[in-house]
Write a protein that binds this DNA or RNA. Structure first.
Length: 489
RNA sequence: CGGGGCGUGGCGCAGUCCGGUUAGCGCACCUGUUUUGGGAACAGGGGGCCGCAGGUUCGAAUCCUGCCGCCCCGACCA
């Protein structure tokens, strides 16, 4: 069973790659660092997208779309932002190819088609968007401006991994403008909370909410709020960020508005995003050595019905009826009618693909008025009376969703330490892994030293922990609050 | 950008050192039959400019030169 999936213990990152491949989520493409998201993987992203999109709309945001290419002069306008992303930008320099005179059948870049100004393939869209907002905002009556875009972006990363870090990735990026600082901060916090709830309620992936230290902050932001999840291998995954941008972009792009008192002021801004990286987080939170495990709320197929041959009209009738009744309850259900594949093959296949519930309907069970119901999360199999099947399975959707969240929370609790000395710190990081709460003196110097010596970085300064006097585990200087450390993806 | 490795049917590989029948194996694929309650068996079949370009040779997947591409390990990152 579970042929060809590497055990997590043996090689976690190979296991991850195997899951991506065996569950048919994505594959490498002909383009360096860029993956092809296959239909099943894309369906998971589409489900995430649908929920988030609705949540953004419910909180007053509208979707729009801005260009892929950003003129270099706009890109460099906000200096910190430009600097932060400069090293990983793909740049368009020419607009035409021609047949190569020295190399028949080949094309070359037409040297006469050089662009006057280079175009940057967006690594994020603040620049082009703020240049546009300048024309949209004149008065306090134009505010707040609450825009989201679903888009692809490109960051020329040195090393890539499917979903977790690809050169091109899909995401949503919200860009809002406000008349006051307080309102912008509230917006950033609203989205931060929205992301955290999405992660827990839909992905069943518990997260720590907090804000980033200055060195980990988004380039061009005054504050970066983050949600941090703990993966099964004890490493942290930054799963979503929401930035308070202050007036940095408003000043860089000269976006001003008139207040009701007829005073000219720069607007206040936020930006926020989650990406296809969430799919990677989903995989690494729940899956096991048999394959993918998906929470029902995001699973493209929530229930698969496998008629167990010999094929018979009676079995198919029962399957159709069960499927129809489940659909009526809003359950995403598939009947596998492929009679060429044997049941054993299908069992393994749907386990690999993480389908939460499998219903086996065969002659032997049916004679007793029973069906077989298998849960992907616990791998339990049960014989259930056909008459109870639909309500039982419907109930399992919630049961499994809750169980996955509880399991992930337990894993996180088991891999979270609170330490007071650097020895304890190093031991916790090296032996146990996971999250470590420790006092920090607030300096970048200490942060860097700890990262160098332990590979662990400050994931965030959590918002939910209480103030508590202590001394920095590294420097011994006073500290008012523990921060969250971990090795990160 | 440094260090290591690899390019051979769709995928994974053998063959390369030491040149020589028709380039082979597993998986996948197609057809047929028997099967079908945990990854079916048998029979038959299709598919290769051996990464690209030169060179050496009677003869090159194999030797030589150049180029291209990819993967892994480090510095960068959602």
């Amino acid at each position: 069973m579970a042929k060809e999936i590497t055990n997590r213990e043996e090689n976690y990152s190979q296991w991850y790659n195997d899951i991506v491949k065996k569950a048919d989520l994505a594959e490498n493409s002909a383009v360096r660092g860029c993956m092809v998201i296959k239909p099943y993987g894309f369906a998971i992203w589409e489900n995430m997208k649908a929920v988030l999109d609705q949540a953004f709309k419910d909180t007053g945001h509208q979707n729009a779309y801005f260009p892929l290419l950003v003129p270099k002069s706009l890109f460099e306008a906000e200096e910190k932002n430009a600097e932060g992303f400069a090293k990983e930008c793909a740049v368009v320099t020419h607009y035409r190819l021609q047949t190569d005179p020295d190399n028949e059948g080949k094309l070359r870049v037409d040297p006469n088609a050089k662009l006057e100004e280079e175009l940057i393939i967006r690594p994020t869209s603040e620049a082009i968007i703020w240049n546009t907002y300048k024309n949209w905002i004149q008065s306090y009556r134009d505010l707040p401006l609450l825009i989201n875009q679903w888009a692809n972006v490109m960051r020329w990363e040195m090393r890539t991994r499917p979903f977790l870090r690809t050169a091109e990735f899909l995401w949503q990026e919200g860009h809002t403008a406000h008349s006051t600082k307080e309102e912008a901060i509230q917006e950033a916090e609203l989205i931060h909370e929205l992301y955290a709830r999405f992660a827990e309620d839909y992905m069943a992936m518990p997260v720590i909410k907090g804000y980033k230290t200055e060195s980990e902050r988004f380039a061009g932001a005054d504050n970066t709020l983050t949600i941090e999840a703990l993966m099964q291998d004890g490493k942290a995954l930054q799963a979503g960020t929401s930035h308070f941008l202050g007036q940095n972009f408003a000043k860089a792009f000269d976006v001003k508005f008139l207040t009701s008192e007829n005073k000219e002021e720069h607007v206040w801004a936020t930006s926020w995003g989650v990406s296809t990286r969430l799919v990677g987080g989903l995989i690494m939170t729940h899956s096991d050595d048999e394959g993918l495990v998906l929470p029902p709320r995001l699973a493209p197929i929530q229930v698969v019905i496998i008629p167990i041959p010999k094929p018979s009209d009676e079995i198919m009738e029962v399957a159709d009826k069960v499927a129809a009744d489940l659909k009526a309850l809003g359950v995403r259900v598939k009947i596998d009618r492929d009679m060429k594949k044997r049941p054993g093959f299908k069992f393994a296949e749907y386990e690999m693909k993480g389908v939460p519930v499998r219903i086996g309907i065969g002659k032997r069970d049916l004679e007793k008025g029973m069906v077989e119901i298998a849960r992907r999360d616990t791998k339990e199999k049960a014989s259930i009376a056909l008459t109870d099947c639909v309500s039982h399975v419907h109930g399992l959707m919630t049961t499994i969703q809750d169980n996955l969240l509880a399991r992930a929370k337990k894993h996180r609790a088991d891999h979270t330490s609170t330490v007071d000395t650097f020895d304890e710190f190093k031991k916790a990081i090296a032996e146990k892994g996971g999250f470590v709460y420790a006092h920090w003196d607030g300096t970048e110097e200490t942060e860097d030293k700890i990262r160098e010596e332990t590979k662990a970085s400050i994931r965030c300064i959590p918002v939910d922990t209480v103030d508590e006097d202590g001394i920095c585990v590294y420097s011994g200087k006073p500290s008012k609050r523990r921060v969250l450390f971990a090795k990160a993806y």
